[in-house]
Amino acid sequence: MNTLKLILAAATALGTCMPVFAGEQPNLLIVSEDADQDTIPRNSRIFNRVERAIASEMQAKGFRVYDETAVSMDITDPHRTRRNDAELISVARRVSAPIDAITVFQIYASTEKNQYADIVDLRVRIDGRILEVNNGAFLGAYEVSYGPGDLPPLPVNCDRDCVIEHVGDQARRVAADVGAELASRLDSISPVATEGSGTVGAASVVPEAGQTVTSAAQAEVCDGLTQAYTLQFRGFEPSELTRIEEYLVSFKGYDHHRPLRTDTVQSDYWYETCSDAARLNRNLRLMTEILDTDARVAVTDNRIEVEKRRVPVTR
């Protein structure tokens, strides 16, 4: 059961009283439902400005937002337009990054000639909603709409590019309002961690040569961009994986991790850290030495495989 499911289950059990606790924050994907022919398609400049405005508001609240094109380009056409909810959810469930929720938005924009003067007014409406990816739970919605007279009219002799830029200016501001409200609603069911919230740390481990750490909270934190890695551990016993996770949370620069898939033989983890790949590779090799395990460590881009060499048992 993922983070959002735990939060929602607790909320249901307690009615409207939300518990004050914080787990791992949900990973978000910002997507546009443009199946309606009246909406602005995702290949428009207006769409790009709206998407960035909503993403910025989500990031300002501390949520991790993944770029849809970057995480889905290997499995679907990033230029495809006019997609419905079913397609968007299917894509979110299959991308490389573990996505918990999608923020779906629609953009409606049109012009209207004033009947009393040579003035062209704008109509702009943006609605957004948040859906939980795994079970489709509805987590919140918000809409902002402006009609003729509510927004500045188009300039005189405004050509196509002028219209697009003018509408984009207004849509971006509207989208920021929608994004801020959706972020606040998501924040209410997934609050940030507070001091003393009870983070569970690792047991006493040695994550790096010559450095002893007694818990994850005491691990040295580095500055810089967080990088995501897929870690694959193959051939390890459950007790060994427990110790491995203790090391992972104590490595320098650790941000967070989560299991992606666990089988009898292989366990895959999504691992985010601001440490560089060379240091992470070195730490994993040192970890296998400390565990006294003969293992192969292989690195391919942001995928690291750690395979335990097992000697056949003589019977």
Rank of each mutant, 00 (worst) to 15 (best):
A92F: 04
P207S: 06
I102M: 12
A53V: 02
V174M: 04
A109E: 00
L28E: 00
S188C: 07
L14Y: 07
R282D: 15
K5Q: 14
D100P: 07
L122P: 02
I304M: 08
D161N: 14
E246I: 02
V50E: 03
E51C: 09
G136K: 07
G253Y: 02
I119N: 04
G140H: 00
E33D: 01
I99H: 03
D85M: 09
F63H: 05
Q266K: 14
A101F: 03
L6I: 11
E143G: 10
A175Y: 03
V174I: 12
Q218L: 09
D292A: 11
C158V: 04
E51H: 12
L241I: 05
A277N: 08
L139I: 01
L241E: 03
T230Y: 07
N302W: 00
A86Q: 10
E87N: 10
Y66K: 03
R160W: 10
T300L: 12
G149F: 03
Q25E: 09
A298D: 12
S90N: 10
M58D: 01
L154I: 02
I164F: 05
R258E: 06
G253K: 02
L29R: 08
A11W: 05
D255Y: 02
S197C: 15
Y229L: 07
S184W: 07
R315F: 09
T212I: 15
V311T: 15
R282V: 14
A92T: 01
Y269A: 02
S204I: 11
S197G: 15
A97R: 05
V313H: 09
K61P: 04
